[in-house]
Design a protein around this nucleic acid. Structure first.
Lengths: 342, 342
DNA sequence: TTGAAAGCGCTAACAT
DNA sequence: ATGTTAGCGCTTTCAA
């Protein structure tokens, strides 16, 4: 309604200069006590509220971090975002989040907007489709600190924080091998996404170290969502008898497998067993609960932020490029051994 | 690293004024074609990026909406937020979200910060503990449009968008009555929160219209989370024999009941049955899946935003104060009738 | 202790 | 078609 009160308004009323008002409001020492008090009182009375845009414009930094994520309604991201917000708040940083909707073009646009907002740094989890690295190179070259988390861009010199996908997958498969399984299948994600690659690598590594090898027709690819698990199981069935146990690239994919198996009357864990990378807060309520991997979402989010702030505070300092946060197995009621009884 | 390029930089290089550059960049008609092209080319070459802070400072509005939510990792909010972001993006509005962490003091602080950022409007879902309405009154008085969604503040003249809690609860209980249940229990949420009140009211209304009445020892209160369902069931058990069916105020509360009942060897739906307000994407995977209410989170979020934008575009126009978005029953494997077989 | 001047980067209004 | 002036609201610098 009415225009916001400005420093000048207060200054006029008090018959002093706006500079003095500014100083008083910020509690600077080079201003009289009496003046300070008058200013404070009037500012309160008038409901003065500093214009943050103006403050930021005249400051060198904005104490704002840009956050770009592919979506929000996603078990991992949701928790990571929550933790990032809380941690940023504690450190007096503002977060401006933008959602790329798994759209690389929009992602690029958002990043440009955030640069235009003069954010002090950028936290990014890329879309499933991001292949063009140019904008990110540009960000770094132009001097804006950048940290990727979860969905990262590897081997290009960026700072990347993520779960230890390879180790986790390997541990999980190792766990299954120790339960006695020998015939493994895999429903993988998008081939070009690093997550898919690492999890597959861990899968193969564990098998290899035990002299095992998956049959070719037991490896299928897809995406990361429930429907991909659904169709993944169908593909496996088309290609012949099922393996003893399926390693799904994500938790939603495992759920898809579970749902489809129910429809088809295939029993888990009796007819085929299942493990996956990931978990959910509902897992213990699901029958059978799925044996999988807990990803420390909050930890990864907070770590990414802290690495970013480190870079902001000390641009010269070199930061370790790749941090893989260890994950752990969450034992459920799948992967119970080939002598099947749940 | 290097300072960002400004209009003045481009102007200097071209030997023209920065105003001309500004005009050219924005494609205004009162500028020469040749000049425009030169400017565009150089801007591109230098990687010019407008300073949004400066743009907003000199503009009357910021095309920014402040969004305040109690948390992000929450089934309903997560989906609402996602939808709000997408819709805002389509309409060329920026969202600045802040998380109050269910802390009324922090909520207040965030709102003040957003006002300081000169957001064009505010979208708020309040904390469980918000009782002081003063800041919101102030927001409205100072002329910033404000819309509450989901967790709203009622009967104080604010614009509120939410699920039709009373209708939904009533429909659900009606549904249960038609299945043959007569002894109802309720595990409610925080008494002072409007959601709790409405759902309880709907519960009572449906019973009343059938001449039914819950026993006093079948009504217990708590909060909105899984642990509250857990302790809610314990309280009911302490107070005597269970009712035939429990109406839980939220989905997480129902899950708590489910988990606790498993621990205690109480069978659902055989020993006691269960319905709740809410649902989750995992419900069909849970055994038994819970009969509950689907809340149109995305719809509510988008509607709240659109009502806010309406107010922004036309401050004079009066907006309907309370919108209760209809909800519908999601049939699961609880509430199967007192002749129990799942 | 105070304030005038200049500047942050941009846009609107008004000449020329 | 182009430029000058002024102003958005604040902070920094420097002089008084």
């Amino acid at each position: 309604m009415s225009k916001p009160v400005t420093l000048q308004d207060i200054a006029n009323r008090l018959g002093i200069s706006k500079v003095s008002v500014s100083k008083a409001l910020r509690g600077q020492s080079d201003i009289g006590k009496a003046t300070t008090e008058k200013v404070l009182a009037l500012a309160h009375e008038l409901g003065y509220r500093p214009n943050i845009l103006a403050q930021k414009l005249s400051a060198k930094h904005t104490r704002t971090i840009g956050l770009v994520v592919p979506k929000i309604a996603h078990h991992f991201l949701t928790r990571a975002i929550d933790a990032i917000y809380i941690s940023a708040n504690e450190q007096n940083y503002e977060i401006v989040m933008m959602v790329s909707e798994e759209n690389a073009e929009l992602e690029r646009k958002h990043i440009e907007t955030l640069l235009s907002m003069r954010v002090d740094g950028l936290l990014v989890s890329v879309t499933e489709k991001t292949t063009d690295v140019e904008i990110f190179k540009y960000v770094v070259e132009s001097g804006t600190p950048l940290v990727f988390f979860d969905r990262v861009i590897e081997d290009q010199g960026f700072v990347c924080i993520r779960s230890a996908d390879e180790q986790g997958a390997s541990d999980l498969v190792e766990y299954a091998i120790n339960k006695g399984y020998t015939e493994f299948g895999h429903i993988g994600g998008y081939e070009q996404v690093s997550i898919s690659q690492h999890r597959f690598k861990g899968f193969m590594k564990a098998l290899d170290s035990h002299g095992l090898k998956p049959a070719e027709n037991h490896i299928v690819l897809g995406g990361f969502s429930r429907s991909d698990g659904f169709s993944g199981l169908d593909k496996l069935l088309e290609q012949g008898p099922l393996p003893q146990i399926i390693f799904a690239v994500t938790y939603p994919v495992a759920l898809g497998v579970l749902l489809r198996s129910r429809e088809l009357g295939i029993k888990i864990p009796q007819d085929v067993d299942l493990v996956c990378f990931g978990n959910s807060e509902y897992n213990e309520l699901i029958t059978p609960s799925i044996t999988g991997i807990n990803q420390p979402a909050a930890e990864i989010g907070v770590l990414a932020l802290s690495k970013l702030l480190e870079q902001i505070d000390n641009p010269a300092k070199l930061i370790e490029n790749n941090i893989n946060v260890p994950v752990e197995i969450n034992v459920g009621n799948t992967c119970v051994g080939p002598g099947r009884q749940a």
